[in-house]
């Protein structure tokens, strides 16, 4: 066990865990931030995507010990009122079905738009290929990303 300081959604958090604990489980079990989801545990499905210093990362495979001093953003901290352009576009296109993967999809999409304000279809495919949607909402996700790009 070790005390680790994390910056999550603009707040400093101190937690006492095994330093090998992946960020995902610290968020879910210790900080009650359950918007970030467990899907595979091996960085293959994207359900656990968060931003680390603005970059989309899979929190299920990222031990917390390496995260001190880094800025972590989860779905709960993406915007103050759920009004990030990507979140708004998701609602405008009524993207979700079951909704389980969508926090991860949104975090991947928001990170994409941050570095590429006007992504092509190919750019979207590349950036989003690590996020599985078992319900099959891909065409809506793509349309919503384009809408968000327009409104950003």
């Amino acid at each position: 066990m070790a005390t680790i300081e994390l910056s999550i959604n603009g707040q400093q958090k101190e937690i006492d865990v095994d330093p090998n604990t992946p960020l995902l489980w610290v968020l879910r079990d210790h900080l009650d931030l359950v918007g970030t989801k467990y899907g595979c545990g091996i960085a293959q499905c994207g359900a656990c995507t968060v931003h680390v210093d603005g970059v989309a990362m899979r929190s299920c495979s990222m031990p917390v010990q390496g995260l001190a001093g880094k800025k972590i953003t989860t779905i709960e901290g993406l915007s103050d009122n759920g009004d990030h352009p990507v979140q708004q576009a998701w609602i405008a296109h009524d993207v979700p079905q079951c909704g389980y993967c969508q926090a991860g999809q949104i975090m991947s999409a928001a990170a994409l738009l941050k570095k590429n304000a006007n992504p092509s279809d190919q750019d979207i495919d590349t950036a989003m290929n690590g996020n599985i949607c078992r319900c099959g909402t891909y065409t809506r996700i793509k349309a919503a990303i384009k809408t968000a790009a327009k409104n950003s």
């Binding site: 009650d32 931030l33 359950v34 918007g35 970030t36 989801k37 467990y38 989860t74 779905i75 709960e76 993406l78 759920g82 979140q87 998701w90 609602i91 009524d94 979700p96 909704g99 389980y100 969508q102 926090a103 949104i106």
Partner: peptide, 23 residues
């Protein structure tokens, strides 16, 4: 007449709602 998913906002903001989120 199409109506938006009533859970849309909760889903896109990561609110607890799934079995795994139960505490």
């Amino acid at each position: 007449h199409s109506k938006k998913n009533v859970d849309g906002k909760d889903i896109v903001t990561g609110q607890p709602m799934f079995g795994v989120d139960y505490k």
